[in-house]
């Protein structure tokens, strides 16, 4: 029984690695301008895990849901709950694959846990601040002296604004910043960020730049959403530059922490807003929900058909590797 479960786990890891390598390889050659939407970038991180999960679950198929097929083959290992002894030859290699994976994910999981702890400490602190209303929106003001504006929290995201930043911005800039942050709240981007970071921690072979591309696309989306609400894309572009100027006045940036887009992130966002006819960004669509729900549908269909074929295909590949 243990061999069946371990073999399924090893198949999960191996397939996530293989699909991840293909996806990351293709993504390197995709120009940024091809995918302005955030969902395709979230998909690049979720797809390898979805494929791996489908194949590894298919390995459990014949015994619990159908008749045992073990007498139909004699040229590869059999993974079947009815005859666990037949999967015995896979015990050692599967254990090695899983052990190597667990060791490789450890640093990422620790980093994620530390980041989560930092976020939750911040959210706890933010929730202690007195809420204030700006129009229809509830915000918390801080006196950081830095030009910061952010949205934090998964279940009930909170918008945080620096009081000095707010005072320095004009009326239209304020509206643009607020609507941009509301875009993050409506799209539940913090939830997506958490899920994608967790998926990346489990797939250390995927490059971090995939997450940064999602993040950049999410910012573009919220910029367009703000532009639609404010009614003028150039007003949002101007707000970005205004906040950038205030940020430059307090610059103490550590170059080691620069994202993949560096300064071009801001440039690209402004250029995207100024593009004639740029599509408005409707909020209220969470990337994880948009991807996971159809994926679960596909998974359910695969389990009905052609799950059994997938099961045999995986066994055949394992047989080729084993012999």
């Amino acid at each position: 029984m243990t061999a069946v479960v371990l073999a399924s786990g090893a198949v999960f890891v191996a397939l996530a690695f293989a699909v991840g390598a293909v996806v990351a390889g293709l993504a390197r050659f995709v120009p940024r301008s091809w995918f302005r939407a955030s969902t395709p970038w979230a998909l690049t991180i979720l797809l390898p895990l979805a494929c791996a999960l489908t194949a590894s679950l298919a390995l459990f198929l014949p015994a619990p849901f159908g008749s045992c097929h073990c007498d139909a083959h004699d040229h590869h290992p059999h993974i079947c709950f009815g005859h666990p002894a037949l999967a015995q030859p896979l015990l050692v290699p599967a254990s090695l694959v899983l052990a190597a994976w667990l060791v490789s994910v450890l640093p990422g999981v620790v980093r994620l846990a530390v980041g989560l702890l930092g976020s939750f400490r911040r959210i706890y602190a933010v929730r202690r601040l007195t809420p204030e209303r700006v129009g229809e929106t509830e915000v918390r003001f801080v006196d950081s002296g830095a030009a910061i504006a952010y949205t934090a929290g998964v279940r009930a995201p909170v918008i945080v604004l620096d009081r000095a930043l707010w005072a320095a911005l004009g009326e239209r800039d304020r509206e643009a910043v607020l609507q941009h942050e509301r875009g993050h709240v409506d799209r539940a981007d913090a939830l997506t960020s958490l899920v994608l970071r967790a998926c990346l921690a489990l797939q250390p072979w995927l490059p971090w730049s995939l997450f940064e591309r999602w993040q950049h696309a999410a910012e573009l989306h919220c910029d367009r959403h703000a532009a639609e609400r404010v009614g003028d894309p150039s007003a949002v572009a101007e707000a970005l530059v205004s906040v950038g100027r205030l940020r430059a006045a307090h610059a103490d940036t550590d170059p080691a922490h620069l994202g993949v887009f560096g300064a071009s992130g801001l440039e690209d966002r402004v250029a995207s807003l100024l593009e004639p006819g740029s599509a408005p960004g409707s909020a209220r669509r969470n990337d994880v929900v948009a991807i996971v729900l159809p994926m679960l549908g596909v998974l359910a269909l695969v389990m009905v058909w052609p799950g059994d074929l997938l099961h045999h295909a995986v066994e055949t590949v394992l047989g080729l590797l084993h012999h």
Binding site: S119, D143, G145, I148, A152, D254
Partner: peptide, 21 residues
């Protein structure tokens, strides 16, 4: 709450990347 957001903060999205030069 007023500290500049770090790159590893898992559930936070800033208007402008605080690490952007």
């Amino acid at each position: 709450a007023g500290a500049a957001p770090g790159r590893d903060e898992a559930v936070l999205l800033a208007f402008l990347d605080s690490t952007e030069r």
